[in-house]
Simulated assay, not measured.
Amino acid sequence: MGTLIHVVMFGAVLIAFIAWAVAALSAFNVVNLAPRGEKLSAYFQLGLWRFAALEARLGAAVKPHLVRYRRAFYVFFAVIVAILALSFTIPFLKTA
């Protein structure tokens, strides 16, 4: 059972890393769509989850990147919560 838990944890960490990378690339894409003087402001707005303000300022071209960012963010934290839940239940599992 111990080896299987390690495999599951590795798979979950891999999924979390991929989701984090997708979110980071989506954030870079959103910032690249911002005008030259507003890139830092776009980062702050993205970090504060002000997607409507970003879409109003940058136009409809930013919508797919914002949707991808939000979904990757949700997947990342869902996997982290699942890893924590699994790690808390491991001591209570009985080995065969």
Score class of each variant (00 low, 15 high):
Met1Gln: 08
Gly2Tyr: 05
Thr3Ala: 05
Thr3Met: 07
Leu4Lys: 11
His6Ser: 09
His6Arg: 08
Val7Ile: 08
Met9Ile: 10
Phe10Gly: 13
Gly11Thr: 12
Val13Glu: 07
Val13Trp: 07
Phe17Cys: 07
Ile18Val: 12
Ala19Ser: 04
Ala19Gln: 01
Trp20Ser: 03
Trp20Gln: 07
Ala21Asn: 10
Val22His: 00
Val22Met: 05
Ala23His: 03
Ala24Asp: 15
Leu25Gln: 10
Leu25Gly: 06
Leu25Arg: 04
Leu25Pro: 01
Ser26Leu: 02
Ala27Trp: 00
Ala27His: 01
Phe28Ala: 10
Asn29Lys: 10
Asn29Ser: 12
Asn29Met: 13
Val30Glu: 02
Val30Asp: 00
Val30Lys: 00
Val31Arg: 02
Val31Ile: 13
Val31Gln: 05
Asn32Glu: 15
Leu33Trp: 01
Ala34Ser: 09
Ala34Ile: 07
Pro35Cys: 02
Pro35Ile: 02
Arg36His: 08
Gly37Glu: 08
Gly37Ser: 11
Glu38Ile: 02
Glu38Thr: 02
Glu38Val: 02
Lys39Ala: 07
Leu40Ser: 09
Leu40Val: 10
Leu40Arg: 14
Ser41Glu: 06
Ala42Leu: 11
Ala42Asn: 09
Ala42Cys: 15
Tyr43Val: 13
Tyr43Gly: 11
Tyr43Gln: 14
Phe44Thr: 09
Phe44Ile: 14
Phe44Asn: 14
Gln45Tyr: 09
Leu46Trp: 06
Gly47Asp: 14
Trp49Ser: 12
Arg50Tyr: 10
Phe51Tyr: 12
Leu54His: 09
Leu54Pro: 04
Glu55Ser: 12
Ala56Gly: 15
Ala56Val: 12
Ala56Asp: 09
Ala56Cys: 06
Ala56Thr: 15
Leu58Ile: 10
Ala60Gln: 10
Ala61Cys: 11
Ala61Tyr: 15
Val62Leu: 08
Val62Lys: 04
Lys63Asn: 15
Pro64Cys: 12
His65Cys: 02
Val67Trp: 09
Arg68His: 02
Tyr69Arg: 00
Arg70Asn: 05
Arg70Leu: 01
Arg71Pro: 00
Arg71Ala: 04
Arg71Gln: 10
Ala72Phe: 02
Phe73Asn: 03
Val75Tyr: 03
Phe76Cys: 05
Phe76His: 14
Phe76Asp: 03
Phe77Asp: 03
Phe77Trp: 10
Ala78Met: 13
Val81Pro: 03
Ala82Ile: 05
Ala82Lys: 02
Ala82Pro: 00
Leu84Glu: 07
Leu84Ser: 10
Leu84Arg: 09
Ala85Met: 14
Ala85Val: 11
Leu86Trp: 01
Ser87Phe: 06
Ser87Leu: 11
Ser87Thr: 08
Phe88Glu: 02
Phe88Leu: 06
Phe88Met: 05
Thr89Ala: 06
Thr89Lys: 08
Ile90Asp: 06
Ile90His: 04
Pro91Ser: 05
Thr95Tyr: 15
Thr95Leu: 11
Thr95Trp: 13
Ala96Gly: 13
